[in-house]
C-alpha cells in the first residue's frame, strides 16, 4: 500500500507542469524515503531527476517499494482538476494497476477522487557520477527564464561563458547576435534576487535553447535556480521544490564539429 498526502497540493501541480512537456511518461519510484523519478527525453539529450522526500508529506506510507509507471500528460490533466488550495493524496494498492488521486478542499467540504491506469514502462536508469563542477551560478529563476526566452528570438543555441567577473549568455543567428551579461551581486537586500558565482575554473559551454526553455517550466517552483557547469560535461539546472526536494535537469552540451 502506498499513500502520500501533500497539504500544499499546488506544489505537485507545479512539479507536473515542470516535467510534462519534456517527458511523455515516467516511472515514479516510491520507497520509505520518498518519491523519485529519473527519465530522459525521447531524444536522450536531457534527463530529469526529481526527488520528493517523505518528510514533505503528511501522512506518508509506503509498505513496500513500488514503481508507478505514469503517463505524465494524463496525470497533468487530472491535476488541473485540483484547486491550488487543495491537498492532494496519491494512493496505489499493492497489486493494482491503477493509481488514485484525491483532492480535498481546505475545509474538507469538497473531496474529489480520480483513478488513472498505470503503465508498464521500460526504463533505463543512468548512473550520474558525483561531479565537482568548475562553475556554480545561482540566479533568480525568473531572470534565467527571461534570458532563455529572449535569446530564443536570436538563435537555437546559447553559449554560456562563466568567469569570476560574471556570466555571459550569447546567441547568434540569421538576424544577428545577442549577449546578456550578469554580474555577481550577492549584496542585494533580497536573497532571492542575488546572482552568485562559485568558480574554480572559467568555463564556456553551448546548449540548445529548446531544452532550456523546457526546464524553465519549473520556474514557479522556486525563486532561484542553480546552474552547475564544467567544460565538456552536461549542464545541471536545479530548482528546489519548497523544503521537500528538488528537480534537476541534465543537458548534454553541443560540441564543435
Amino acid at each position: 500500500m502506498f499513500e502520500a498526502r501533500l497539504a500544499q497540493g499546488t506544489l505537485l501541480k507545479k512539479v507536473l507542469e515542470a516535467i510534462k512537456d519534456l517527458l511523455n511518461e515516467a516511472t515514479w519510484d516510491c520507497n520509505e524515503n520518498g518519491m523519485s523519478l529519473q527519465a530522459m527525453d525521447s531524444s536522450h539529450v536531457s534527463l530529469v531527476s526529481l526527488t520528493l522526500n517523505a518528510e514533505g508529506f503528511e501522512p506518508y506510507r509506503c509498505d513496500r517499494n513500488c514503481s508507478l509507471g505514469i503517463n505524465l500528460a494524463s496525470m497533468s490533466k487530472i491535476f488541473k482538476c485540483a484547486s491550488n488550495e487543495d491537498s492532494i493524496t496519491i494512493k496505489a494498492g499493492d497489486e493494482g494497476d491503477t493509481i488514485t488521486y484525491v483532492f480535498e478542499s481546505p475545509n474538507g467540504d469538497k473531496v474529489s477522487d480520480y483513478e488513472m491506469k498505470l503503465m508498464d514502462i521500460e526504463t533505463d536508469h543512468l548512473g550520474i557520477p558525483d561531479t565537482t563542477y568548475s562553475c556554480v551560478v545561482k540566479l533568480p529563476a525568473a531572470e534565467f527564464q527571461r534570458i532563455c526566452r529572449d535569446l530564443s528570438q536570436i538563435g537555437e543555441s546559447v553559449t554560456i561563458c562563466c568567469t569570476k567577473d560574471g556570466v555571459r549568455f550569447s546567441a547568434s543567428g540569421d538576424l544577428g547576435s545577442g549577449n546578456i551579461k550578469l554580474a555577481q551581486n550577492a549584496n542585494v537586500d533580497k536573497e532571492d534576487e542575488a546572482v552568485t558565482i562559485e568558480m574554480q575554473e572559467a568555463c564556456t559551454l553551448t546548449f540548445a535553447l529548446r531544452y532550456l526553455n523546457f526546464f524553465c517550466k519549473a520556474t514557479p517552483l522556486s525563486p532561484q535556480v542553480t546552474l552547475s557547469m564544467s567544460n565538456e560535461v552536461p549542464l545541471v539546472v536545479e530548482y528546489k521544490i519548497g523544503e521537500m526536494g528538488h528537480v534537476r535537469y541534465y543537458l548534454a552540451p553541443k560540441i564543435e564539429d
Binding site: 536531457s46 533505463d124 543512468l126 548512473g127 552536461p234 548534454a252 553541443k254 564543435e256 564539429d257
Partner: peptide
Amino acid sequence: GTKQMSLTNFFKKK
C-alpha cells in the same frame, strides 16, 4: 557548426 551530444555519451546505463 556544432553537434548536439547525447547524454548517454556521458552517463552510463545502470
